[in-house]
Design a protein around this nucleic acid. Structure first.
Lengths: 199, 199
DNA sequence: GGCAGAATGGACCAGCAAGTCCAGAAAAAG
DNA sequence: CTTTTTCTGGACTTGCTGGTCCATTCTGCC
């Protein structure tokens, strides 16, 4: 694929997004290239034309798309956690989004389904976690700058704990359908930020 | 399978445990019945003799085994969280176990791999979460009884938050290889127990 | 307008894995 | 001891899925 015409680029994009949607709806386990063909109105050969590496390469492209979407879905709040109010708005946005989406969410797709497919996809996941944590940690540090969070708190560790809670909360939501774990994890994590490091 | 002789029961058990081991090592994605046959020294027809429902039924049996093992691996500490010392021992056991096991752990198998296969497996996961949370909540309530944890704390919610942190910490560990998230989640969660509900 | 390269269609291939079948060995039952 | 049931072996079938191939049609460019 040395050069892509405008039409070609559009087709390629249509394939990626259609595949992502299909996976969100039906999972990656029994996703076939025929499914992708049907949904995206493309022939067999186009799939291999745009993704010479076959299914793996396509899934990797989907993983990148979905990883970006996970963070984008939390904006603008995630990017400016500069007051307790924005923290709360972020918390509500996360809870609301996952409650509504059920299992049809990009995070689930990336973390649980795609990450086991290829090493490349695993790298995408690792990068997602890293970026996510960095944004949370930046928010904590900003609040420490304004004195609203105890400066003695380890911002990195607090962000890590909070992120783990979100991940686990979503995982449990997907497994059991109960939103309470995610809420509890978020509320407890935010409470810790307020409380400071000591007892 | 109306009746099983002693020999038959032993074979059946061998199949389940061999399959579980195989999945822990190589994942469920490309597990074939031939793999199971080879590892457990059983023929094709035995698999269907003992599990008429085929692969799904076998995987469900494995899910039950592994779910039990997840909790058993945390005993005896998980069952008697009656002092800060036992909480700490439990915390260290969890961290140590997952650090050592890497991705070859029953929790990963059950949560990430088997839960997507059948509705039955999903029920097994839901039950695992429920039992796990109940044990944690019981520990919190006991500590409230002895006055070591603020009685105003919502034990159920605290247990839910802690469990979400563990789940997420393990998920991130599997995705990135970093143990820090699990540690941060556990330490932060235990800190919250010590601090009490208010600020 | 014509040519090189890109885009598309769809038939075809090869391999693999779940599940079936039946015959025969082992074990329980009487 | 024989009869009935369970247990075991392995060949076979069937369906599907990723991937290949080549012919045809567009598209952009000189």
């Amino acid at each position: 694929m040395r050069t892509l015409t405008a039409k070609g680029a559009a087709t390629r994009q249509r394939i990626i997004e259609g595949t992502a949607a299909e996976i969100r709806e039906s999972g990656v386990l029994d996703l076939t290239l025929d499914d992708v063909s049907a949904r995206t109105r493309t022939s067999r050969s186009q799939l291999f034309h745009y993704f010479p590496g076959g299914k793996d390469e396509l899934l990797l492209a989907v993983a990148r798309l979905e990883a970006d979407r996970v963070l984008a879905d939390q904006q603008p709040q995630l990017g400016e956690l500069t007051s307790w109010r924005s923290w709360r708005e972020w918390r509500d946005k996360v809870v609301g989004r996952y409650r509504d989406q059920g299992s049809h969410c990009p995070l689930n797709v990336v973390m649980s389904q795609l990450s086991r497919t290829t090493p490349g996809a695993q790298a995408v996941v690792a990068q997602l976690i890293e970026r996510w944590e960095a944004e949370l940690a930046a928010g904590v540090r900003h609040m420490q700058g304004t004195g609203e969070i105890d400066p003695a708190l380890d911002a990195g560790r607090a962000a890590a704990a909070l992120l783990a809670g979100v991940q686990g909360g979503v995982a449990i939501l997907l497994a059991t359908g109960q939103i309470g774990y995610l809420e509890a994890a978020l509320d407890s994590g935010l409470q810790s930020l307020r409380a400071g490091p000591g007892r």
